[in-house]
Nucleic acid binder design. Structure first.
Lengths: 159, 159
DNA sequence: TCAGAATAGTTGCATTTGAAACTATTATCA
DNA sequence: TGATAATAGTTTCAAATGCAACTATTCTGA
């Protein structure tokens, strides 16, 4: 039902505004997975991100973790501090550059990683269950292109 | 380069994990638009959401605003308080039910709405510029289906 | 070699947030 | 009726966040 009279004023239907839709969907998805691992493992979203990258690549430094997870340095610092306290992570400082320290999962940390991972993947699978494999590929492709345009170093505004 | 030996352990490539991708993209997009209206109009994300729905539908109550924007009640309360202070909103309490109060944009509020709106739409347009019209439609369709599955009232976890 | 810049990571602090408690008003129904 | 429940909206308070400042270490170049 669009207004065909004269020149139409631009209107924003929030429901079809992409930034809004992404925000709502992203929050719903994150909340749902986080509810699982917060409830069952007392792991926060940021902690899980760190476990996830260290599960893939052992021995990363804090800065490398921050780059891969797009977290800021204080967030990584605080989350790793908690994980170290709980014995899920170990830290070994670099002998040739003592500013750096490599982080890795401990046995206990990997156990939790191994416990959470299949459930997270199962959630993703459920989420994508109503969508064909081709559509999933299409979606990833679209997200990639959007991410490129939206990347923080691009400036669309200043003229 | 995948490991073809024995039974493959399930691994999580964070970069292709949909919840993570959505979170990163959504944050980048929101941040970028918000930078504009925070800098130029001192309007926060939540305030803008409220202006946006009231720009479409005058006279909503706080609860209705909360439902449409998926904000929680305290967030709506705080953001409207600021907007009222700044004279961008008016509030008229319902005579037949004094718990309720209708919110509308003031003249000044609509001016700001009218100033932000085209820029927000322009950003959305830029964001979608690398994507064909069909792909945009596909994207919206996919987001709709994902949102349905991810909606907070659905419980995928408890067995 | 040594002063100043750069980098790794942590801490402080002010702001934002979110859940629960709270006030005020209206609805329900015995 | 009048006690209890429900609803609209605000406030409180503890926790999470994000930025800047800080410590410690290493690098750079005159």
């Amino acid at each position: 039902m669009s207004d065909a009279s004269g020149k139409p004023a631009p209107t924003l239907k929030l429901d079809s505004f992409l930034p809004y839709r992404l925000s709502v969907l992203s929050n719903a998805v994150s909340r749902k997975i986080a509810d699982m691992y917060e409830r069952e493992f007392e792991i926060s979203i940021w902690q899980w991100r760190i476990l996830a990258v260290l599960g893939e690549s052992e021995g990363l430094t804090s800065t490398e973790v921050a780059n891969r997870t797009l977290m800021d340095k204080p967030a990584v610092s605080r989350a790793t501090a908690t994980l170290l306290d709980r014995g899920l992570l170990s830290r070994t400082s670099d002998t040739s550059d003592r500013r750096k320290a490599a982080l890795r999962l401990t046995k206990k940390g990997r156990e939790i990683y191994n416990a959470i991972l299949p459930r997270a993947l199962a959630y993703e699978h459920d989420l994508l269950s109503s969508i064909s494999a081709e559509e999933v590929a299409t979606l990833h492709g679209l997200l990639t292109r959007l991410s490129h345009i939206a990347s923080p170093d691009r400036d669309l505004w200043s003229e």
